[in-house]
Design a protein around this nucleic acid. Sequence first.
DNA 1: GTGTTAACATGAGTATTATTCATTGTTTCT
DNA 2: AGAAACAATGAATAATACTCATGTTAACAC
Lengths: 300, 300
Amino acid sequence: MLTLQHLYIIEKITSEGSVTRAAEKLNLTQSALSHQIRDLEAASGVRLFNRIGKKLVLNEAGQRVVTSSQKVLPVIRELEAELKEMREGKKQTIRISTECYTCYHWLPRLLTGFQEDYPGTDIQIVAEATRRPMEYLEAGKLELALVNGTNGNCSLHFEPLFEDRMVALLSDKHPLALRNTPLEFSDMHSETLVAFQISSSNNLLSPDLVSNLSPKKVIHIPMTEAIVEMVRFGMGITVMAEWAARQYLSTGGLTTLPFRSEIGTRHWYACTHKDRSEPLAGLVGRIQAALLGTENPAAA
Amino acid sequence: MLTLQHLYIIEKITSEGSVTRAAEKLNLTQSALSHQIRDLEAASGVRLFNRIGKKLVLNEAGQRVVTSSQKVLPVIRELEAELKEMREGKKQTIRISTECYTCYHWLPRLLTGFQEDYPGTDIQIVAEATRRPMEYLEAGKLELALVNGTNGNCSLHFEPLFEDRMVALLSDKHPLALRNTPLEFSDMHSETLVAFQISSSNNLLSPDLVSNLSPKKVIHIPMTEAIVEMVRFGMGITVMAEWAARQYLSTGGLTTLPFRSEIGTRHWYACTHKDRSEPLAGLVGRIQAALLGTENPAAA
DNA sequence: GTGTTAACATGAGTATTATTCATTGTTTCT
DNA sequence: AGAAACAATGAATAATACTCATGTTAACAC
């Protein structure tokens, strides 16, 4: 059976022009190479070298092997070099995603300065993993996910980050706007919910929240600004984090109503694999320090 | 150290989704694969899989390995398949060259019909090896060379093919044209030789012949037709095989003079490596049978 | 929960393979 | 012909890969 060692040996023999010198370069004995070539020729049933005088010269089949070696060995060497870099922590990428697009508004700011502390560590935000970050994390396509709720998954590690409150954003002319007690799920049963939609099964609200709300009607729109405008003109109510809603209040015509604390509070976690690399742990600590105790990550 | 076996194993684990099933496909035990992965991870110092529950899932480093595997393994498999074909004699190419361009005029005719006898064997004429065919043969870039003279090389095999005679081709108005005894080397000392030139060091005449002729002047021209015309108008004498010169006699104004037999006779051989494959031996036999006894290979 | 299954991990022993050492056989050079 | 350079070979040893038996863990059923 053909092995990489065979390719290494044949490559060196042809580049050095003799078995003896190739053996020296490979820190092996001439005998070892001679046996290897012999075995490979026996196993493949094909002569690879012509014994011309005391020299070995590649024949057609041998040339063919060298051609393949020249394709294969650089790839292998590059791979080994890259694995080595990974081991030494030189080259590492931390791929991040969140369960909520709005998080991307403030996340990048928290990451500034990290590059200086860990110069070899690259950070990538993987937007396509949004809303399914834990699946991506388990599939090895992500190193860090910002999620609200642990989802009962015990094979991953969850580090608490902060808590926020969900509020309803609605027109100040809406009947509910006058209410001065926190909202219950049941309050939404007779209302129209305007929700951000990514795909048919995805919206910006956590699935359990939507199913609990069970509004009379749901309008899906894939643009936040459009949602806010619809809400402003009384076409429905939307639900978002208090810190996200805040920026829209000053634009006029809008008001917010909190949900009752028990049902409207989201617990955010930094979700990683249990065995975290050093830079990843550092990044989580950094994010945690910046966010802990705040209710407004956008200002943290 | 990374081996192809590691790549085979990782590839199968990711395609099958489990170590156990991969082991079955590879006709190995689950334990064997488990050890291999463990050893590779230990040796490279990099985790390749995340142990998520009871499943193994590739992480970034593992993905990187798979990426390289996908480049490497197809090349290896193709190589192995091709070596197998070579072993079974299915795919073999016989690369031929000669020491003399004129041989290409009649060589292809001798090769017709060979394809039917050995359908898996491909024949290529390697023109760039002309004039140095034995070097190419030793370098593994040729399987068969048609040469005149054995060159004292004892590591190659020489099969006699035919003999031909060198003649001088000259204008019938040339003083020498009246001569009725064979030419000696010394006859050329006062003459101008018109010779085919390929490169600065190469001409169609064998090197020893040119040095023996030592003509007064040598004119190199890279076109046979031009040489003949120059000779026809008395601008010099050229030297070629009798069978090659014959075709020009009927065009008028030209005559040939033979060299003395001992110095003008060329012995042609089919030169191969000592261990010849079956189809190559067949081809040599075929050429030999067609040429043996003739002095005019162009008519054989 | 408790058992059961399915999957991977581990350690010890065995089989296989790779390498070395010592030697022989060739070829080339002088 | 002798020496030097190189490759081939066989036997012994070192290294490695693999199996077997068993342990561990997680997921699932009841």
